[in-house]
C-alpha cells in the first residue's frame, strides 16, 4: 500500500491532529501510560519495598535532600516514602483497574446491546429496562452499595466498575446496531446466506464501534475518578496496592498539620490524567461523529 492511499486510520489521525490541544493531551496520556507501565525504571525508589525506605527522611517537604543525599522532588510521607515514586506506582494501580474494568464492560455491554438489537421482543425490553433503571442512579452510589456487599479488594473494585459501566455500552451499541441492521449491506449479507453470528460480528459490529470508542475513552476517565473516590472512602483498593485515591486519603491526616504535599501531588496527577483523557475523548467525539463530516 502506497503512502498516498487514505486508510480510515490515517484519516482519523490527520483529523485528530487538527486540534493542537487534543494532540498535546494525547501525548500526555501516552507519557502517563508509559510512566505507569514502566514505573520501576522511571522512579528513584520502590515505594513498597520497606528496605529501601529511610525513616530519617520522613515527612520532608518537596525538593529537599534526604539524610543519605537522596533527592525528593515531591517530598516524602511519614515513613520516608518518596511521593513521586508512590504517585507513579499509584497511577499504575489506578490505570490498570480502570482499563481492565472498561475493557470488560465494553465486551459485556456490546454483546448484550447487539443481542438486544438483533433479537428484539421481550429480550430487548428486559435488557433495556435493566439499563434504564441502572442508569437512573448515580454511578458512585451504585458502586458504593456494591462494594458494601462485595467487600474490599482490587478484584472487587473491578467487578463493581464493570457492573456500573456495562449499561452505557449496552445502550450505545443497541442504538448503533438498530440503525445498522436496517441498512442494505446487512440485507445483502443475509441474502448470501451467511451465518447470523458472522453477520452480527463481522459486518454489524465494526460499524457500531465509533460511538463505543468515544464512550469508552470518557468512561476510562470516569472509572479512574470513581475508583479514586471509592478508595478515598475506604471501600476501594487495599492498603497493599494503593491507588492515587488511597494516597490522597492517606495524606488527609497530615493536611491539617500543614504537610500538604502528601495529598496535593497525587491529586494533581489525578487531575492531569483525567483532564487529558477527557480532552482526547472530546476530540475523538468530533472526529468520529459522522454528522460533522457532512
Amino acid at each position: 500500500m502506497s503512502a498516498a492511499v487514505e486508510t480510515p486510520f490515517r484519516r482519523l489521525v490527520s483529523e485528530f491532529s487538527t486540534s493542537p490541544v487534543a494532540v498535546g493531551a494525547g501525548i500526555a496520556v501516552v507519557l502517563i501510560i508509559l510512566a505507569a507501565t514502566f514505573a520501576e525504571f522511571v522512579v528513584p525508589q520502590n515505594p513498597y519495598d520497606l528496605a529501601s525506605l529511610n525513616i530519617l527522611d520522613g515527612s520532608l517537604p518537596p525538593m529537599s535532600e534526604g539524610f543519605e543525599g537522596n533527592y525528593y522532588l515531591l517530598g516524602t510521607d511519614e515513613q520516608g516514602r518518596d511521593m513521586f515514586s508512590a504517585m507513579i506506582y499509584g497511577l499504575r494501580t489506578s490505570l490498570l483497574v480502570s482499563f481492565i474494568a472498561v475493557t470488560s464492560a465494553v465486551l459485556i455491554g456490546m454483546t448484550l446491546g447487539m443481542f438486544a438489537a438483533w433479537r428484539g421482543g421481550w429480550v430487548e425490553s428486559l435488557i433495556m429496562r435493566i439499563v434504564d433503571i441502572q442508569l437512573s442512579f448515580p454511578a458512585l452510589l451504585v458502586a458504593l452499595i456494591l462494594l458494601a456487599i462485595l467487600g474490599k479488594g482490587v478484584d472487587k473494585v473491578i467487578i463493581a466498575l464493570i457492573m456500573i459501566q456495562w449499561a452505557y455500552f449496552a445502550r450505545t451499541t443497541r442504538g448503533a446496531a438498530l440503525s445498522e441492521i436496517r441498512k442494505d449491506y446487512v440485507m445483502a449479507a443475509r441474502c448470501t446466506a451467511l451465518g447470523q453470528m458472522r453477520i452480527l460480528f463481522r459486518h454489524v459490529l465494526p460499524n457500531c464501534l465509533p460511538p463505543v470508542i468515544v464512550i469508552a475513552t470518557v468512561q476510562i476517565a470516569n472509572a479512574i475518578a470513581i475508583e479514586a473516590s471509592l478508595s478515598f472512602l475506604g471501600v476501594g483498593v487495599p492498603i497493599t496496592e494503593p491507588s492515587l485515591g488511597l494516597l490522597i486519603s492517606n495524606g488527609f491526616g497530615y493536611l491539617l498539620s500543614g504537610r500538604y504535599w502528601i495529598s496535593f501531588y497525587p491529586g494533581i496527577a489525578l487531575l492531569l490524567t483525567l483532564t487529558c483523557i477527557n480532552l482526547v475523548g472530546d476530540q475523538m467525539r468530533d472526529v468520529l461523529n459522522p454528522r460533522l463530516h457532512k
Partner: peptide
C-alpha cells in the same frame, strides 16, 4: 468538571 470531588474538598480545607 474534571476535578475529583474529594480531592477538591481537601484542597478547600488546605
Amino acid at each position: 468538571f474534571s476535578t475529583p470531588n474529594f480531592w477538591q474538598g481537601l484542597m478547600l480545607i488546605m
